[in-house]
Simulated assay, not measured.
Amino acid sequence: MSWQPAEKPETDTPSCPALETVIIPRAHDIGGLEVRRALPSAKRQMIGPFIFWDQMGPAEFITGKGIDVRPHPHIGLATVTYLFEGEIMHRDSLGTEIPIRPGAINLMTAGSGITHSERTSADVRASGGPLFGIQSWLALPKSHEENAPAFVHHSRDELPTLEDEGKKVRLISGELYGMKSPVKTATDTIYADVVLDAGTALPFPATYDERAIYTLTGDIEIAGDTFGPGQLLVFRAGDEITVKAKSAARLLLFGGEPMDGPRHIWWNFVSSSRERIEDAKQQWKSGAFPRVPGETEFIPLPER
C-alpha cells in the first residue's frame, strides 16, 4: 500500500513486566478500505526491521468495487503482504503480475527503487467479496539499501505449518517451533500467523531482542493481563512469555534483531540518509523511476 497520512497510534504502559508498551492503532480510510496503522508510532519506530504495520480491513466490497492503489514508488525497504481473506493483484516495474491470496506471501524488495500497483482484478471485482490482511515494511540494512529491486512470491503450500492440540502456526519467515520458512529476508526475522482455540497456551521464545504480538481476533492473556483485538504488544528483551487464548484467537508473532541505526521515513521511502530520500522525491517527480508495464496512472508526489 502507498503511505497515507494517519494519526499517530495511541500507546499505553502495561502492568505486565514483560511488556515494554502497548500500541493501539488508529483507523483511517483509504478509498473505502479501513486501515489500522500500528507502526511507526510515537514510542516505537521499529521492531527488528519491521518499520511499518498496517491491518487492511476486514472489508466487504459490493459488486463492482475493490481497491485501486495506483503505481507508486519505494526505496530502502521490502514490503510483505499477507492476506487472511480476499485477493490483491500485484504489478510492478520488474514486469511481475501475480495475484496474492490467503496464506501466501508477496515479498517485494525495493532496494534502489521500484514502482508497483495493488488492485482488485476485474474477475474478483465482478462478484465483489472480502479483503482482510496485513501489509508490513521491512527496513533494509545499510548494506542492502541500494541493492537491485526484486520480487518473490511464496504460495500457501510453501510455508511450513504446525497443527497440534488446539493451535495452528503458519511460519511466514524465520525459524520457530522447529520449522524453517523458505522466505529469504535481508536480516533475520521471525513472522508467524497463529490461530489458537480457547484455553490453548503457546510459548513465545526470546529468540530476538525485539519481539511483538499483534492481536487480530479474540482475547488473549499474558501474565494475568488480558488483551483484545487490534493491539500491538511490544516485549522487553530476554523475557520468555506464554500466551493463553481466553477465547478463540488469531494473532501474529514477529520480530528480529535491532536495526543498524534509525531510519528516515517519508511517504513510501525509507532510508538511513535524508539526502537519499530527497533524491528519491525528485526522481519520482521527474518521472525517473521505472514504470509498471501496461499502467499509465500514478500517485503524484505529496506536496508536504
Score class of each variant (00 low, 15 high):
residue 110 A to H: 08
residue 222 I to T: 01
residue 246 K to L: 15
residue 240 E to T: 02
residue 45 Q to D: 14
residue 199 G to Y: 00
residue 132 F to N: 08
residue 245 A to H: 08
residue 37 R to S: 03
residue 192 A to Y: 05
residue 107 L to M: 09
residue 81 T to S: 13
residue 46 M to V: 12
residue 204 F to M: 06
residue 229 P to M: 08
residue 48 G to V: 05
residue 299 I to Y: 08
residue 231 Q to C: 04
residue 192 A to M: 10
residue 278 E to W: 14
residue 78 A to T: 12
residue 79 T to N: 09
residue 29 D to Y: 01
residue 47 I to Y: 02
residue 36 R to Y: 12
residue 210 E to R: 01
residue 4 Q to G: 02
residue 17 P to E: 07
residue 97 E to I: 04
residue 103 G to N: 05
residue 281 K to Y: 11
residue 248 A to F: 00
residue 104 A to Q: 04
residue 203 P to M: 07
residue 281 K to P: 00
residue 119 R to W: 14
residue 145 E to D: 07
residue 11 T to K: 06
residue 119 R to M: 12
residue 208 Y to S: 05
residue 117 S to C: 13
residue 259 M to F: 00
residue 274 R to E: 15
residue 43 K to H: 07
residue 275 E to L: 11
residue 127 S to R: 13
residue 147 N to S: 15
residue 126 A to S: 15
residue 144 H to L: 12
residue 67 I to F: 00
residue 62 I to E: 14
residue 99 P to F: 02
residue 109 T to A: 14
residue 130 P to M: 06
residue 148 A to D: 15
residue 139 A to E: 03
residue 40 P to M: 07
residue 238 G to M: 04
residue 111 G to W: 07
residue 97 E to T: 06
residue 91 R to P: 01
residue 27 A to H: 01
residue 237 A to F: 04
residue 138 L to D: 07
residue 187 T to S: 15
residue 146 E to K: 12
residue 112 S to M: 07
residue 12 D to G: 07
residue 239 D to E: 15
residue 258 P to V: 10
residue 121 S to T: 15
residue 60 E to Q: 12
residue 69 V to M: 09
residue 153 H to T: 04
residue 62 I to R: 15
residue 65 K to D: 12
residue 166 G to H: 05
residue 303 E to C: 06
residue 152 V to L: 09
residue 107 L to V: 11
residue 111 G to A: 09
residue 297 E to F: 10
residue 61 F to R: 09
residue 143 S to N: 05
residue 203 P to S: 08
residue 135 Q to K: 05
residue 127 S to L: 06
residue 134 I to W: 04
residue 154 H to L: 10
residue 197 D to N: 11
residue 73 P to F: 11
residue 166 G to Y: 07
residue 100 I to Q: 00
residue 75 I to S: 01
residue 56 M to P: 08
residue 114 I to Q: 05
residue 231 Q to E: 14
residue 22 V to E: 03
residue 10 E to D: 13
residue 157 D to W: 06
residue 213 I to G: 06
residue 237 A to W: 04
residue 79 T to Y: 13
residue 109 T to G: 12
residue 260 D to L: 03
residue 251 L to Q: 04
residue 87 E to L: 08
residue 118 E to I: 01
residue 53 W to I: 05
residue 9 P to R: 07
residue 122 A to D: 14
residue 90 H to V: 05
residue 115 T to G: 00
residue 98 I to K: 10
residue 213 I to C: 09
residue 164 D to R: 14
residue 228 G to L: 11
residue 287 G to Q: 04
